[in-house]
Design a binder for these strands. Structure first.
Lengths: 200, 200
DNA sequence: CTTCTCTGGTACCGATCGGTAACATAAATG
DNA sequence: CATTTATGTTACCGATCGGTACCAGAGAAG
């Protein structure tokens, strides 16, 4: 009996090496149901393998969680180079693009907030191997956003960056309690107004 | 072996009826360690009683969780009457007081964010008895904040209220990943600037 | 005293948790 | 070919999970 049915029939991803399949499945299940709610057996089964193979690639569930978050952090960090390549030499445009990219993530119907932030809620133990991943990623995001605000010649760039940061985290949280019609629907307008008021 | 040591020697609360002791302990443990991380046995033990008594007062762990959140929601809702009584007929002052009250909750060294929001992260199942408690509380908070902004004659009260709402939720989240020196430390300034820019 | 309600204590249930031992197989490598 | 490496399979471990049956005592109420 599969508690967490895999939506995809895994036809394409099936022949990836088991480590990739495991990480892919872990990513889906951890995000949708929560980390503590998903057991290693369910992950292995959904990945078309078994617990032994899982433990040959990951020292423990906690390490699997850490690796899962490491992948997400790497993807999240890749947005900055993407912004630079899509709006070269236009930091103001990059900042606007960042805002709309964030808004799309918030409004995504399958969205359940930021996986890193959710993990921070679920894993309060400060010695958990996932915590440093979370903290480093968030720290990096904050710094990158401050740098972007500065380059975009935003007035009070630190304050505005922190405000945008909090708005995004808050929008993610509001999504999970009040849905897309809650305060989260004001995210773009709020961000645009904030940037506008501190531009030039 | 007690996994979650109770900090207080329970000298005073010890002789409350077991239901109150259980709820008090559940509140502490659920908030500090997370809901899924705490078992009913640990709660009963820390409350100086046992599982049987717990299940005589609560139909299930899920119902205990729901009741725990109901208590928190009631306390959270009581702030609005408190604001009214401390700043009677002064909605602008009430709004500022709300902001600083929220900031104190964020900056509290024992804070681990909003318990309701954290529960929403941990309990994504939409039929969980706790979810309606969370949604109703958040919905009510949003409406109260909108009404307060309106009475305080804030321009674009809906947008500002949602923005303050997201700022607070975001500040709570930032606390859990980047601590008090993270973006959360800009919460008050951001809120004040927002209110200032939309006043009169 | 007797009855009734509440509580404590203990032992237990089936299920699941994270994690491992041992062995068979298949594929890549030499 | 032979050997090695990675994977699949099964069964199992001790611990804990949420939840319950059963009985002993304690206190208040009649």
């Amino acid at each position: 009996m599969t508690i967490f049915p895999a939506k995809a029939p895994e036809s394409d991803a099936q022949r990836l090496p088991p480590r990739e399949r495991l990480l892919s499945v872990a990513r889906d299940l951890f995000y949708r149901h929560g980390i503590r709610a998903v057991g290693v057996e369910a992950i292995a089964e959904a990945a078309g393998t078994n617990k032994m193979t899982l433990y040959r690639h990951f020292a423990s569930k906690d390490e699997l969680v850490a690796e899962y978050l490491r992948c997400l952090a790497a993807e999240k960090n890749s947005i900055w180079t993407k912004l630079e390549s899509e709006h070269p030499g236009d930091p103001a445009g990059q900042l606007r693009a960042w805002l709309h990219e964030a808004a799309r993530n918030v409004a995504d119907p399958t969205s359940r907030g930021c996986a890193l932030a959710n993990a921070a809620v679920e894993l309060p133990e400060k010695d958990h191997p996932a915590r440093c991943v979370i903290e480093q990623c968030k720290q990096s995001s904050r710094e990158k956003l401050v740098a972007l605000c500065r380059k975009a010649e935003i007035k009070q760039p630190d304050l505005v960056a922190d405000q945008l940061f909090m708005l995004l985290e808050g929008a993610f949280m509001c999504r999970q309690s009040l849905g897309n019609e809650g305060p989260a629907c004001s995210f773009v307008r709020a961000g645009e107004a904030l940037i506008e008021a501190h531009s030039k």
